[in-house]
Design a binder for these strands. Structure first.
Lengths: 263, 263
DNA sequence: ATCGATCTCTTTATGGCATAAGGATATCAG
DNA sequence: CTGATATCCTTATGCCATAAAGAGATCGAT
């Protein structure tokens, strides 16, 4: 499920995000028992605990002792609620990186922080990036990356593309781990159990596997990374290694681009 | 919506994928009016035309003049149907690349083909990559990439990570365009209409934008790539540029990794 | 020729979802 | 106290996957 942002009334949505709210004067009607803030908090709690698929208006309402429909007084629709969740959560990301450490160190720290962030809130990976939410914290995040990468001396156009590439990579890498955990939680079958079972079936169904796919067989023959921490499941260890190695590849590539541009 | 694969009976699922099917002898009961193949084809047609969100058992059945429940005679569940769609579609990807052209050219062609493939079948990007389907064509695809990259001389472990990184990147880049088109189709608002409208709202709600986010302001000041083809919308042009530039960065990075390993 | 087994396909729930519509009630300004 | 307005609820609509059960077709065995 890819969740799209900003389907509803754009003006109302932006006002909620940027908190340019109306008067708040005393007005007729019962006192509000809830607020946008507590609803967004409850929704984030639901999504963190049970994933985006379990985020329903009913589930959020239940957590607040209300029905699903009560939320519509505060929030125009689920789409806007997701926007608000997204921008609120983004505020967690650290914003300042020491420019004296150089852009390589800066990008590395930023990527590590983003990785950890996405794994803390895996549902964020399911919020679509096109037609962005355009909330304040999304811009803070962008401001931060660009601030770090500005030191490369790249022009605005090329830098935009480097930033995009970094996002593709970090999101993809984090998504692997997030989906692995989600699959394990949803099915009750860990990767450690799932893979050998499937490998056995594969052997039954394609006994000539090694001859048909020699490259794949060779690729999988390579030693798995040794478990530094036994408690981390196999797939997560591999994904973490891929994240580290891929980031190094990207940084080398950016350096090559910078060198070329500098000449 | 991320769709997970292989939730059902694993043995049945693998048998369907690898076509190690039962007898087919004359058996009692009415002649089957459908087949797994025509169901998978119809499902792919639905997903191609209207996206993963519109892929319902009812929609597929309707296309075949049946009810949703009729499909369950052939396919254990929607999850297995998606597995079959995925592996069938993957067969479209070209498999052979000229080794004499070198791995850089090979990877570039492969990435171009994958990019075009994902844009032809954007719903494929919503099939989860962990707990893979393990169908034959998925392995053909992997065999192909590894065949191209083997020429780098990298060991199996590091090569696995390079392959993973490439996939993250290509999928992410393609997803941007896919989601952009999906958003435009779903809302009836093109990016060309959406962005200026939102930018105006942003100006209302955050009049001090340029001071608050100087880096972002600078980043967006850079010239957009000139439209080589007027018919391609702005965001797609940018995404395409990001794909090309990011791929170049990745290739440079891989080259640096190879050089280091060779020493 | 007929019977029982088996298979295809349908109809009808069940329990989920977002949200439109309408109504009960609380709280304000006047 | 009245009328306006706001909160929150119940109910209904139309989606979704799929469980359950039954109608009818078609076979092998008799």
């Amino acid at each position: 499920m890819v969740v799209f942002a900003g389907q509803g009334d754009a003006r109302r949505s932006m006002a909620l995000l940027w908190r340019t709210e109306g008067p708040g004067d005393a007005r007729p009607g019962p006192k509000p028992g809830l607020s946008v803030d507590v609803i967004v908090d409850a929704a984030i709690a639901v999504a963190d605990a049970e994933g985006m698929a379990a985020l329903s208006m009913r589930a959020v309402g239940e957590r607040l002792g209300r029905t699903a429909m009560a939320l519509y007084t505060y929030v125009p629709s689920k789409s806007e609620l997701v926007d608000l969740m997204y921008d609120r959560t983004l505020a967690e990301l650290p914003a300042g990186y020491d420019p004296r450490a150089g852009w390589r160190a800066g990008v590395t720290s930023w990527a590590e922080n983003a990785w950890a962030f996405y794994l803390r809130h895996p549902w964020v990976l399911q919020v679509s990036q096109v037609r962005p939410v355009l909330g304040p914290n999304e811009y803070v995040m962008l401001e931060t990356v660009v601030g770090v990468l500005r030191a490369t001396g790249l022009e605005a156009g090329p830098l935009r593309r480097v930033v995009g590439t970094l996002f593709y990579f970090v999101r993809g890498a984090a998504q692997t781990v997030a989906e692995s955990r989600q699959a394990a939680a949803a099915t009750g079958v860990s990767d450690e159990q799932w893979w050998p079972a499937r490998a056995a079936l594969l052997g039954e169904v394609a006994p000539d596997f090694a001859e048909r796919f020699p490259m794949v067989a060779w690729l999988e023959s390579g030693p798995a990374s040794p478990p530094e921490d036994e408690s981390v499941p196999y797939l997560e260890r591999e994904a973490r290694k891929t994240f580290e190695a891929g980031l190094a590849v990207l940084l080398d590539g950016i350096e090559a681009t910078v060198d070329r541009a500098g000449t």
